[in-house]
């Protein structure tokens, strides 16, 4: 019974995260959304196996602990990258023009694509 509540809460948080990830353009918000989703995920990982076993299972807890460490370091790394990007381009969003798809050619003609391939020798 209680596990059902936890699962529902996890699902709700996860949904919030998905919404945030899709809607917001700012990288900071995207990262927050991803972290929300991760929290929901960890909640689920703790609850679901336990609900089968009846008593706490150490394995998922160990996994979640590792997961949290990875999530923290990934987030820190992403934040550093975001700051770097912000300093370079003045805003912390990913440039939408980067989506090349099949329009790559047309787009390339218009905005001198070789600029992207250039690098300081």
């Amino acid at each position: 019974m209680t596990s059902a509540i936890f699962v529902l809460v996890a699902a709700a948080i996860f949904g919030l995260g998905v919404h945030g990830l899709l809607v917001s353009a700012h990288i900071m918000r995207k990262l927050l959304a991803l972290n929300l989703m991760l929290s929901a995920l960890f909640l689920l990982l703790i609850v679901v196996p336990a609900s089968i076993d009846g008593h706490p299972d150490p394995v998922p807890q160990a996994l979640v602990l590792t997961g949290i460490v990875i999530a923290v370091s990934t987030t820190a790394f992403a934040l550093a990258l975001m700051v770097r990007l912000f300093r370079k381009q003045g805003h912390a969003t990913i440039h939408p023009d980067l989506d090349p798809a099949l329009l790559g050619r047309k787009h390339g003609r218009r905005t001198a694509p070789e600029a992207e391939g250039e690098r300081a020798p």
Binding site: I27, K30, L31, M37, L41, A78, M82, L85, L98
Partner: peptide, 21 residues
């Protein structure tokens, strides 16, 4: 360290985290 490289890296990171999730 150019805008293009940083954006590409950022995009890769976000998607990869989503994937691992």
């Amino acid at each position: 360290d150019g805008i293009a490289a940083l954006s590409a890296a950022m995009r890769y990171l976000l998607l990869a985290v989503l994937g691992s999730l």
